[in-house]
Write a protein that binds this DNA or RNA. Structure first.
Length: 262
DNA sequence: ATGCCGAAGTTACTTCGA
């Protein structure tokens, strides 16, 4: 089976591209982030026509997460245990579901904005809540993974030029420690292969020719428990989906699994 | 070639993203 995660930067604005990509790539399950639409405005009919059920959480303007599946979509959970709020609102940044033999979370970790900003504290608190929420699933015998836009570069190699990010978010020790705490729940970062160049970046800013110049960051991750990792036969970043007019600024991460013994 | 930012709500401009 094939699983993917993609920060799509508006589900409705990207719908035609998504449908084309689904037909070409054939994932069984897709975790989406930054859907930027209310749950009621999700294009569920068009996705159903393409063979996918949709579970979505969103409020309309920013954020928003969803899971698409053509192999079943059950036990949907919205939000983390004790998820922190921002401006007194519980933002739609996490949704979980069981799809066939696997359980997944699609997460959109807060950006953080600037070190010391209250959004940065919110980001660290969100990652702590994520670690606590996924602990039982990570420790279970069934394949389990947390996929999404973590807004953290796990290592210095995961940003095209660290010197371009002096004292900024995404690369601080505190953020990496908070990400490591999620992994300490029993999850491994499934490192994907790039389709071109030497590093699997997943995000390139729209500005400054960053994509053609390959000035990217690896911030979209798939964290898997041992059963999921054992089933994984391939992982790659589909940078082709970042090309052309009307692309998201993120590329999908695609994972292939062999679950025939389950 | 992959090409100089894009989306959405608050419909002219602001806010957000990383």
């Amino acid at each position: 089976m094939r699983v993917a995660t993609w920060n799509i930067n508006s589900l409705n604005a990207r719908l035609d591209r998504l449908l084309t990509w689904l037909a070409e790539t054939g994932p069984d399950v897709v975790c989406l982030q930054e859907t930027k639409c209310a749950a009621d405005d999700a294009p569920t009919d068009a996705l159903a026509a393409a063979g996918y059920e949709t579970a979505a959480a969103g409020t309309g303007r920013w954020n928003g997460v969803a899971i698409l599946s053509r192999i079943g979509l059950e036990s949907v959970a919205v939000g983390l245990d004790d998820q922190p709020e921002f401006d007194d609102a519980a933002e739609p940044r996490a949704i979980g579901a069981t799809c066939g033999p696997i359980r997944l979370w699609s997460v959109y970790v807060p950006n953080g904005r600037d070190v010391g900003h209250r959004h940065y504290r919110y980001k660290l608190d969100f990652l702590a809540a994520l670690a606590a929420t996924v602990g039982p699933g990570a420790a279970g015998a069934e394949p389990f993974a947390v996929l999404g836009d973590f807004n953290v570069c796990p290592t210095d190699d995961d940003v095209w030029d660290l010197a371009e990010w002096p004292g900024t978010t995404h690369v601080t020790a505190a953020e990496r420690d908070a990400l490591a705490e999620v992994e300490r729940a029993g999850l491994t970062d499934l490192f994907p292969r790039p389709l071109k160049h030497d590093w699997p970046y997943t995000f390139w800013d729209y500005r400054n020719l960053d994509f053609p110049k390959n000035r990217g960051m690896r911030i979209d991750l798939a964290l898997a428990n041992p059963a999921f990792e054992a089933a994984c036969t391939d992982a790659y970043v589909d940078r082709n989906a970042r090309k052309g007019k009307g692309a998201s600024d993120h590329a999908p991460v695609v994972l292939d699994l062999d679950t025939t013994d389950r």
